[in-house]
Design a binder for these strands. Structure first.
Lengths: 216, 216
DNA sequence: CACGGTGATGAACACACGTTTACTATAGTA
DNA sequence: TACTATAGTAAACGTGTGTTCATCACCGTG
């Protein structure tokens, strides 16, 4: 694929890829142009020359990653939630992980690309759920849209577990092993649930009803 | 409580509270000392005078928030995952939300306080699960530790849903309404599961087994 | 009153970093 | 060859920001 370290790409592409890597790993703020230029093997001035400004470079990276991920999301929409994302993740580790990481950073910073990406995921997931419910492979839900948002949220959270969480699992760094370890319980919950009965659910429903009464 | 805007606290406390608010809202990098000083109603130099450096100010804030949250986590450990955290969240909105937000930022930046906080939560949750399983209120699990990490992860993710996700739900900003809307599906999943049968689980187990074979 | 010690300040310093500028080199082309 | 466009660079500039410095303004105490 195009994951070759620094092939004979155009300088623009090399800079863009370096920027994506840095933004994904360290965030937009912490990354400085000179670092991007260094990994791209060019001068800092050239970055500006080609992209105008750091902000515009971010926009270009946003669009680039967004296009790749959305295409992938659409083609891979034959399985649900954890399964599709984590399978993708496990299959093409490096590049995919980078792009997902990038997009999560974008979500944290609330860029417009993030909105598009999230909306696509949610839309795709919701449709998947409606089909699954109609087809009988999934349980009925009181709020399919909220369910879709929730599963997207959980999937994204799982794919980018923060270091403290991974260490709590006994791993040093995030990786396929971590995902396998934590994906199984997720699927168990998705198939069997977590509680033995519905007392928690009933209690929460009651509490929230009562509180809604208080509020208004 | 101590949530009075700018009572006759000592200057140190005012600065610390202002710093916590800014760090939680904008992150450590983006907030500058002069902004903190402004909301605290003092000069930037005084911040340094009292705390030595911005980094040390962060450490003090870390410990402060950590102490409060850990105490709260221990006393509130009578319910599980979503329930306890979100109930807490809904009951004492402002301050608690601020502290949770702060800690999530700390987790993102992998500070030592975040590690302590996460470990406490996971430990507490795991014990809760073991008790629940023994007592019959919760289902058996193949990996209780991973389950604990997962539920902590999900709870934290839910409490800090990013703007794009909340907008996908039709809300403008995160708040109690969002939490109620997304908490119910979470509890439904926790009690009934998501899938109608265990084909997904079986398939994933098989796929991961096969892939493990490939890897080694 | 004098006088240290403490809380507080504005101005200046130092550095990091995004950006600009002046300049070089290479290559296609009339 | 001369000209223009393109790709590239090093060095300088300007700004934001963490930090230091010299200096007040108190205030309790001898």
């Amino acid at each position: 694929m195009c994951s070759s370290p620094s092939a004979d790409l155009t300088a623009q592409a090399k800079i863009r890829n370096a920027a994506i890597a840095h933004f994904a790993r360290d965030g937009f703020q912490k990354t400085n142009l000179r670092a991007i230029a260094a990994t791209a093997g060019v001068s800092a001035a050239l970055v500006i020359r080609h992209f105008g400004s750091k902000d515009n470079l971010r926009s270009v990276c946003d669009e680039h990653v967004l296009r790749i991920l959305v295409r992938r999301a659409r083609t891979a929409a034959d399985l649900v939630g954890v399964r599709d994302l984590s399978q993708e993740y496990l299959s093409d580790a490096e590049e995919y992980r980078l792009h997902v990481q990038y997009m999560v950073r974008a979500i944290e910073e609330d860029s417009s690309a993030a909105t598009t990406f999230v909306n696509t995921l949610v839309e795709e997931t919701e449709q998947l759920f409606r089909d699954g419910i109609a087809g009988g492979s999934m349980r009925q839900s009181s709020d399919v849209r909220a369910l879709a948002v929730l599963t997207v949220l959980v999937s994204l959270a799982m794919l980018t577990i923060a270091p403290p969480l991974t260490r709590a699992l006994g791993f040093e760094r995030m990786g396929p092993d971590v995902l396998r370890r934590i994906g199984l319980p997720m699927l168990e919950i998705y198939t069997h649930g977590l509680y033995a009965d519905d007392t928690m659910l009933k209690a929460a429903q009651a509490a929230w009803e009562a509180q809604r009464g208080d509020d208004l």
